[in-house]
Write a protein that binds this DNA or RNA. Structure first.
Length: 408
RNA sequence: GUGACCGUAGCUCAGGUGGUUAGAGCGCCAGGUUGUGGCCCUGGAGGUCGGGGGUUCGAGUCCCCUCGGUCACCCCA
């Protein structure tokens, strides 16, 4: 039997990979224009980074990590997300002050695969470090919004909430636990067990939605400073014309968040895993990792989901397909293809020994715009060029094929 | 981790109650056209019926296990 790709992983091949290519390219251009620098961190990290940074009580750390021991006896984990790594790298690099970085790459989470949820999945994201201004939150949210726009995804809205500062969360947590305790018999088993470990998570549980509907909201319990920050974010989004809706029940599954949390949804994408991206402010993270306090805000976009939601792109084709009419001219044809490529054109030929007819079939299937036939007329310095859309043909001087093709 | 459905050629699928050499369409390759695609015609290649075990004289078809897929829960990008 041929080995299969591991469960929950995907091979991304052409022509389907075209959407991925465009999205990744578009993201790089976008991030660079907003001033974020290319950032790469390891795909695997010491397990401790995630247990401390992401939080031991979170689902991600509790049961979704790919963790193994390496040959040196170290506990290693394939990264389930990139933010902790970027902050670790920042703290360890001696970098001072503001840092803006973007990243793109695969993440790993041991989960049951379904639509929009894979064991290896791709994220692109930005992190804006050492900038406490709510305008940094706004800029980060804007980057994600623009990415979705330029990917052709319509009806995008930003769901927005504030979960306050750590002290607010502690107080709120008590109030929420009290509320949940009164209704414990109505809750699902998971919700009950989560009451002690991570009660905020009960808020966005689908099974407990009706019970939680009139629970106190984090937004009502935040301190003055956090409320002012939130107001600043809202005002900024309005100024930037980014559509948002305040979602009092929105919380994030990772422990490091404070204040602003957000996610992107689109009416054009309606799988159960509906968030196309998400993020928030995570001022506590640097200290959780043992560093000095560093204000921070960032986002991660789910590339797999975005590609699912994107319009499909018709595959492109070669500008000039070179066909060999006389096998003795094969080397000349190879030379012509190389010359066309040097001239910046997409040029191909069939390297097998197929008949001219078969070569035309291949050319047609590949979506070639023009086919240049290398045959007897080569000795007169000519090739026959056929326009595939209407079949019109004409002789063209060999050295003029490139310029001729560029203008047609 | 839980549940439902599913797994036959490269792709989409047929294969009543188990019974001779497992089929179709599309795709692929070649030819019909001695230098030409998209339409048409002819021919061809291609399958350990996801894998393993069991029941049976006989299993693609029944049973068990396993791997994988899809969707949902959970959770998240």
């Amino acid at each position: 039997m041929i080995p299969q790709a591991p469960k929950g992983t995907d091979d991304i091949l052409p022509p389907a990979s075209e959407g991925w290519r465009r999205l990744l390219r578009g993201f790089e251009d976008l991030a660079v224009r907003y001033g974020y620098g290319f950032t790469m961190t390891p795909l695997f990290e010491a397990t401790e980074l995630f247990s401390r940074g992401v939080g031991v009580e979170t689902e991600v750390v509790e049961k979704q990590m790919y963790t193994f021991e390496d040959k040196g006896g170290r506990s290693i984990t394939l990264r389930p997300e990139a933010t902790a790594s970027v902050v670790r790298a920042y703290l360890g690099s001696g970098t001072q002050g503001v840092f803006k970085g973007y990243y793109a790459g695969p993440m790993f989470r041991y989960e049951q695969p379904q639509s929009g949820r894979r064991r290896q999945f791709y994220q692109v994201g930005v992190e804006y470090l050492a900038e406490p201004s709510p305008d940094a939150d706004v800029e980060v949210i804007e980057v994600g919004y623009r990415l979705l726009q330029q990917a052709g995804i319509t009806e995008v809205t930003v769901r927005l909430n504030s979960i306050g500062d750590p002290a607010d969360r502690a107080a709120y947590r008590e109030a929420l636990v009290a509320f949940l305790k009164d209704r414990a018999d109505l809750l699902s088993d998971e919700a009950r067990s989560r009451m002690s470990s991570n009660p905020l998570r009960v808020l966005d549980s689908k099974a407990d939605a009706s019970v939680v509907a009139d629970a106190p909201a984090p937004l009502d319990a935040i301190c003055e400073a956090a409320a002012a920050h939130f107001a600043g974010v809202v005002a900024g989004l309005q100024r930037r014309g980014i559509p948002y809706e305040i979602s009092p029940r929105l919380v994030r599954g990772l422990d490091y968040y404070n204040r602003t949390v957000f996610e992107y949804v689109s009416a054009a994408y309606t799988a159960a895993q509906e968030a196309l991206g998400g993020g928030g402010r995570y001022d506590p993270l640097a200290e959780m990792l043992g560093g000095p306090p560093v204000a921070a805000v960032g986002l991660a976009m789910g590339v797999d989901r975005i590609v699912l939601a994107m319009p499909k792109f018709p595959p492109g084709g070669p500008d000039v397909f070179v066909a060999v009419a006389d096998p003795a001219r094969r080397e000349d044809a190879i030379g012509l293809v190389a010359a066309l490529r040097d001239a910046g054109l997409w040029s191909e030929m069939d390297l097998g020994d197929r008949s001219l007819k078969a070569q035309f079939k291949v050319a047609g299937r590949r979506g070639s715009r023009l086919v240049a036939v290398v045959g007897d007329e080569w000795s007169e310095g000519l090739v026959t060029v056929r326009r595939m859309s209407d079949g019109e043909e004409r002789p063209v001087a060999i050295e003029e094929v490139a310029s001729w093709a560029t203008n047609r």
